[in-house]
């Protein structure tokens, strides 16, 4: 696979570097901090940041984008970013960030909560950050770690999976509805 020209580094920035940089930007690092960690200046980073997505667009086999997701999930281990971390929102946020990567149910519940937030006109990513101190970057890292497992869960027990999702959904619909004084059709009954 190392022969694949679409995997050649761009200005010395490998796909591993690029994926970790994206994950890190999602968890609060600025563009300047990311460029610095990669040892390049902004014009170089910005070119790589344009050209890596182009490679993904050109690759009909989806190999590059699959690898991107995989490396994204391993961003925590990338050596170039091991010393640079965005200031964690709080100690509690740190604990929740660990938990979302270690506890599949917790991740699934908050993923539903985030989506329901949007259904109630709330910026879900901001809500998760405010309430749990988890950044969208860490959320996506957790997603890429759990996706395969969740896919297997669905195949093994579709009904059970749906029931759990429905229960989470009902829980957060209630929460957000209460915060806005109910849904507009709550008084209409059969």
């Amino acid at each position: 696979m190392s022969e694949n020209p679409l995997l050649a580094p761009i200005h010395g920035i490998t796909l591993e570097d690029y994926s970790a940089a994206c994950a890190r930007m999602g968890s609060g690092l600025s563009e300047e901090e990311v460029a610095k960690a990669l040892g390049v200046e902004l014009p170089v980073w910005q070119e790589a940041n344009l050209l890596w997505p182009e490679r993904m667009k050109q690759d009909a086999t989806f190999h590059i984008v699959t690898l991107f997701g995989q490396y994204f999930g391993q961003a925590d281990q990338h050596p170039k970013f091991s010393v640079v971390k965005a200031a964690p929102p709080s100690a509690e946020g740190n604990a929740n960030t660990e938990k979302i990567k270690a506890d599949k149910d917790y991740y699934q519940e908050l993923e539903v909560a985030r989506q329901v937030a949007y259904d109630y006109g709330v910026d879900g990513a901001q809500w998760i950050l405010d309430k749990y101190g988890i950044t969208i970057g860490d959320f996506q890292i957790a997603a890429s770690r759990w996706n395969d497992q969740i896919h297997r869960d669905i195949q093994a027990d579709y009904a059970g999976y749906n029931a759990r999702q429905a229960a989470y959904k009902a829980k957060y619909q209630q929460l957000f509805a209460a915060a806005q004084g109910g849904n507009v059709a709550d008084d209409i009954e059969f």
């Binding site: 580094p9 761009i10 200005h11 010395g12 040892g39 014009p43 170089v44």
Partner: peptide, 12 residues
């Protein structure tokens, strides 16, 4: 200035 190997990009 930069510890990297520049390749053929857009302007660089």
């Amino acid at each position: 200035f930069m510890e990297t190997k520049l390749t053929d990009g857009i302007h660089i």
